[in-house]
Design a binder for these strands. Structure first.
Lengths: 149, 149
DNA sequence: TTTTACCCTATAAAACAAATAGGAAAGGTG
DNA sequence: CACCTTTCCTATTTGTTTTATAGGGTAAAA
């Protein structure tokens, strides 16, 4: 099981925007530079986040991107769902489950249980926490740098 | 995030063997037919499970496969690890993490936390539980069939 | 000695991930 | 207005991984 790059980059971009919350807005270029994500690749990521209504540049094209909601109101799972319809670690779960045995399958139950557990966890963490954590890490970093002078 | 087929098939094969625990042993062909897994593909799965010491056919080649340990002593994560060295949903976790930012990255922390949660969950479930559940499901199924006569 | 079951390596086909490329549209600025 | 920047959109490429299948060798039971 691997997390895809879009979701990972998407989270990092969103943390960056969350740290800018209440600020001046951020251009794609700025996010790309700060997070070292290919500018062109970020195109797709921003597009997905925008389509899902998680970010917006409502004050005009050159106003920069902002979170569309409060950081507290955006969970990690919200961001995950910008890149995949839903978390579904196996296909037998959910509507389009092709497996006929799923109704009487202990394995299916197992994966379904894990799936729920992961969703629950991703839903319990919001951008506010992550931004605060990142800010703390950044400060710690700056302090560490000072001692090296 | 998707679970791969080998792990899924591997679990199903192991549940089948767990239900046979204390029994006569099962041939690859038998497992393949019961679980509707391609006989040839099952080759690789059985090979991996055997290499990891989870199953054995110690009483001779034609004795059939058995669990190498008690069902209670084999966790889902043990089986998972037969097909991947370890669960690692992102690469920045662990020894070969290539990401320089990982030490000061809230995102990395996030995925690391999720990773641990998943491992904990997979480690908390053992084959004994799964086999019992599957047996219950099978019986329920047989009963249901009766009513349809 | 024939059959059965396991064991091993190579290869193919398909799907997916990750990124790049090219350019259209639109807004702000000198 | 002309021009630069930024967003927006679609297509294409490249590489990797997944999901098998194929083919044959080995060993032991019947």
């Amino acid at each position: 099981m691997k997390l895809n790059t879009k979701t990972r980059y998407g989270i990092r971009a969103m943390i960056e925007l969350a740290m800018d919350w209440g600020g001046k807005g951020m251009f794609q270029k700025e996010i790309s530079e700060r997070q070292e994500i290919s500018y062109k690749y970020l195109d797709h990521i921003i597009s997905a986040l925008k389509t899902k209504g998680l970010i917006s540049n409502v004050d005009g094209k050159k106003s920069g991107y902002r979170l569309a909601k409060k950081p507290e109101e955006i969970s990690v799972y919200d961001i995950y769902k910008a890149f995949e319809p839903a978390l579904q670690i196996v296909d037998c779960i959910g509507e389009h489950g092709e497996c006929v045995r799923a109704k009487n399958c202990a394995a299916s139950d197992l994966w379904c249980g894990l799936n729920n557990k992961i969703i629950e966890h991703l839903d319990s963490i919001n951008l506010s926490e992550l931004a605060k954590k990142q800010q703390a890490l950044n400060q710690r970093d700056e302090k560490a740098d000072m001692y090296y002078i």
